[in-house]
Computed example of a mutant assay.
Amino acid sequence: MKRKVIIIISLIYVLFMAALFVFYFSKDDSYRYLIAIGGIICGAVPLILVRFTKIKFNMPIMLSYLAFIFGSQFLGSILGFYGLGWWDTFLHFLSGALLGFVAIALFERMTHKQARHDISCWLVFLFVLSFAVLGGVLWEIYEFSGDQFFDMTMQGGGNTDTMIDLTADAAGGLVIAISAAIRTKRKFEKT
């Protein structure tokens, strides 16, 4: 059932972005139709994963991913929410939280259930926070590289933009890391 829901929502997003591509291409709006192409690709990622892997999907992560790309690509870039000033920071906070959830899922898949009793809640905290911050750092390297090598303006505010983005990523990851550490501690105190 989860796979079907992911397929349906992803297909809706891909078709929505495809319609936007056609619309903006016909208007010769290259900025927006290129974003729509990116939306088609990003929306197809869950479809490709469902089709070519046997990964059991964490529904909240997949829905959060699709909501995030909708907020970034459609609301942020196509509708211009990035012009609000706070939208980029809000999305970086959400991406930090989303990466924190991904870290929890990875942690649970990479450790044996019996071994988790011996793992400190502080290690879980550090793993989740570090994973979220690493994701933010890699994104900022991507933006910096685009600006340096392709004469783009992804880091509109330069160092200030980068530091605000990294702080927001860290804050989002911190919220999830604290929650994961508390949950881990409570879970293993009961046993």
Rank of each mutant, 00 (worst) to 15 (best):
A115S: 15
L84T: 10
W87F: 05
L123N: 11
W139F: 13
Y31P: 01
F101A: 08
Q114G: 04
A132S: 15
D118T: 11
E140C: 05
P46D: 04
L63Y: 07
K54I: 00
L123R: 11
L75I: 14
L106M: 14
G158A: 11
W86D: 00
T153A: 11
V45I: 15
T89D: 00
K56M: 02
I41V: 15
L134E: 06
S95H: 05
L106Q: 10
G157M: 05
A103M: 03
V102K: 06
G135D: 04
W122I: 12
S130Y: 10
D28A: 14
A97R: 00
K56T: 11
W86V: 08
L47T: 06
Q148L: 14
L91V: 03
P46T: 03
P46G: 02
G76L: 03
V50A: 13
I41L: 15
D147P: 03
F127L: 14
V50Q: 03
F52S: 07
L99V: 07
T53P: 03
T153C: 02
A103W: 01
M154Y: 12
N58L: 08
G157N: 04
V124W: 01
N58I: 04
I55H: 03
F68E: 02
F93P: 00
V128F: 04
S145Q: 09
W122L: 14
H117E: 15
L138Y: 05
C42I: 09
F25V: 04
H112E: 14
Y31M: 12
C121L: 07
M154I: 10
C42D: 01
I104R: 01
L91A: 02
K56E: 15
T111F: 10
L75Y: 07
F93R: 00
G38A: 13
L99W: 11
L98V: 06
D28V: 10
A67K: 02
G85R: 01
K27W: 07
I78P: 04
K54E: 13
F25M: 12
K113W: 07
I61Y: 01
F74Y: 15
V128H: 01
I69S: 08
S77N: 13
F125P: 00
